[in-house]
């Protein structure tokens, strides 16, 4: 809430429309980011137990119907998609037509392949949100990271910033291209206290919907209660400042395409070095360079004065 007020305040201060004011407002935001936001305490989340997923793709179908997405290229019960690869031999990813995809990983030493559901992780401090210069993204108190297509300019910085490569863009549209990503069914379900469509549709109960803090406790209890079953890591608990979607696996996460080098800091913290420098330049530069000017033109000034004297 504090964050929102501050943003409103800055909006007000910008009404003057002076760049320098904007820049100092920015500095304030930088310090706000410095004080670790950490997410809304009551926010909801989803715990994904990947050991249970059988790769039926029902969640993909449910997402498609719930979000009114275009017809898929192949039926949702066509499992040949698991053999598809995008550029660079990489597994399928979210697109403008699919906000979630399930990928199959054949892991050595595991009897069955492991299936991994992929969608927006709904970060506590989303990189897309903090990098957006028109404030198109909002982290709702319920935990969803939602997007306002009406103000999006289409700079696509959010796609550059997202550490999980989630946002897709309707490159095919010339008239109204927008970012396409999972919004945790905010409009149709989450807002009314209901779980996302994919969670509800899952026949295997892979996903548990609940308060994020409860899910964290539950996940750790699952890890401890089943010694040897799970890898002792809850992916998303701390990654890039914590995410609303979290994952349990029985094989090391880096073997199933999870980036294990993201660190615990939210992405905005990497930008702070620069943001901290902004007010410094704004305050010091004018004085410094006026001083330089006076010094370097002193001789000239003296020359001009001396004939008079």
């Amino acid at each position: 809430m504090k964050k929102l007020n501050r943003r409103n305040f800055i909006k007000g201060s910008l009404a003057g429309g002076i760049a320098t004011v904007a820049a100092s407002g920015k500095a304030k935001k930088a310090s706000a980011a410095g004080g670790d936001f950490g997410g809304y305490p009551e926010s909801m989340g989803v715990l994904v137990d990947m050991t249970k997923c059988v790769g039926c793709r029902t969640c993909e179908a449910a997402c498609n119907k719930e979000q009114g997405l275009p017809e898929p290229d192949k039926p949702f019960d066509d499992y040949s998609v698991f053999d598809e690869h995008r550029h660079g031999g990489l597994p399928r990813r979210t697109t403008e037509k699919a906000y979630t995809v399930v990928n199959r990983y054949n892991v050595e030493g595991r009897d069955h392949p492991l299936f991994r559901k992929f969608q927006c992780n709904h970060c506590n401090e989303p990189a897309c949100l903090t990098s957006c210069f028109v404030n198109a993204y909002t982290k709702t108190p319920e935990g969803a990271v939602i997007y306002n297509p009406k103000v999006c300019v289409g700079c696509r910085t959010c796609m550059v910033a997202c550490p999980f490569y989630v946002p897709a863009y309707s490159f095919t549209s010339a008239i109204n291209p927008v970012v396409k990503k999972c919004i945790m069914c905010y409009d149709t379900r989450l807002k009314f206290g209901r779980p996302p469509a994919c969670v509800e549709s899952c026949p295997q109960g892979v996903m548990t919907f609940g308060k994020r803090k409860d899910l964290i406790a539950l996940a750790h209890q699952k890890i401890e209660g089943n010694p040897g079953k799970y890898v002792d890591h809850l992916y998303g608990e701390h990654e890039v400042g914590g995410t609303s979607w979290m994952y349990l696996s029985d094989v090391p996460f880096d073997k199933i395409g999870f980036d294990m080098h993201l660190g615990k800091e939210p992405i905005i913290s990497y930008v702070k070095d620069f943001l901290a420098m902004v007010p410094m330049v704004l305050c010091i530069w004018p004085a410094l360079f006026t001083g330089f000017h006076l010094l370097s033109t002193r001789k000239q000034a003296n020359k001009e004065e001396s004939p008079k004297a």
């Binding site: 009114g68 909002t138 939602i146």
Partner: peptide, 12 residues
């Protein structure tokens, strides 16, 4: 700020 689009599909 909320999205008003998005079809209500009767998955319920």
């Amino acid at each position: 700020m909320g999205l008003k689009t998005g079809k209500q599909v009767g998955l319920a």
